[in-house]
């Protein structure tokens, strides 16, 4: 395929498609009308309004907490599992290996209802904790996949060399393995965090009273019409994401330049 302008236009259009609804949300966060229909006047008032909306703040913090805890737990468990599955042999290992992929492939709704059923069976009260457990449940396999891709043959060589030098298992894991697979861990953790923030279906089934998270709050509002303070909050979230991404990009390019020198 030649490098024709029409080709670049296609790429551009795909990104427009991906960003269109977000752009609209951002634009309407500055709209003085509360209806999200016609753009009337420019205003910042919805950004102040966020702080008056107790429910919105609470659900946002809950969402961050769910994403934070489930990311930390699933990253630790997933990393350990990936290493364990890579290093050791044990009975039914192959079976375990394929069972782990189930949460990735089956429809989220099936995972949601099966977790709901099991919580009901165990008479577990639904709430934030059940959402967290559920998010851990679907994040672990994604972390394992990411970390596993970072565990290569090279790792074995290093590990054996260290063992010959008399390093303990724990030391090997801490000082040799972790640094090697760190990129895998980071991308696994990012994935877990992203999936948790994005999730609707699993939270919908495993939430209880008082466990308002952002998606549930928005779901209850979406038909009655979302107030623009939600748009404003989304805009702020996006802004933070872009700042973080740009910082990472800058750090990376600096690193590359340093290495080049």
């Amino acid at each position: 395929m030649k490098n024709r302008p029409i080709n670049n236009l296609f790429i551009f259009l795909v990104f427009i498609f991906l960003y269109l609804p977000i752009i609209v949300l951002v634009v309407y966060s500055f709209n003085s009308s509360s209806m999200n229909i016609l753009f009337e006047n420019f205003t910042f008032k919805w950004y102040e309004e966020i702080f008056n909306n107790k429910e919105l703040i609470e659900s946002f913090l809950n969402t961050l907490m769910v994403a934070g805890i489930s990311t930390v737990v699933s990253t630790i468990l997933g990393t350990m599992a990936a290493y364990g599955l890579y290093k050791y042999n044990f009975p039914f290992k192959n079976l375990l290996n394929s069972l782990i992929y189930i949460p990735i492939v089956i429809p989220e709704i099936v995972l949601g209802i099966s977790l709901l059923s099991i919580y009901t069976l165990m008479r577990l009260e639904l709430g934030l904790h059940t959402i967290i457990i559920s998010h851990i449940a679907f994040s672990i396999p994604f972390v394992i996949v990411s970390v596993r891709s970072a565990l290569t043959r090279e790792t074995i060589t290093y590990e054996e060399a260290a063992k010959d030098l008399g390093a303990s298992n724990f030391k090997i894991f801490k000082d040799i393995i972790i640094p090697i697979i760190l990129p895998g861990i980071v991308s696994g953790a990012t994935l877990a965090f992203t999936l948790s923030l994005d999730d609707v279906v699993i939270s919908y089934f495993t939430a209880g009273p008082g466990s308002n998270t952002l998606p549930l709050y928005i779901y209850s509002m979406i038909k009655t019409g979302i107030t623009p303070d939600v748009n404003a909050l989304t805009t702020i979230m996006l802004l933070i994401v872009f700042i973080i991404l740009t910082t990472i990009a800058i750090i990376q390019t600096r690193k590359i330049r340093k290495e080049a020198i």
Binding site: L18, Y19, I22, L25, T63, T194, L195, L197, D198, D199, V200, L214, P215, I218, Y219, I222, V230, T234, M237, L238, V241, F242, L245
Partner: peptide, 9 residues
């Protein structure tokens, strides 16, 4: 990036 805002939004 769009994933970091919730899919419902």
């Amino acid at each position: 990036v769009p994933f970091l805002t919730n899919s419902l939004i």
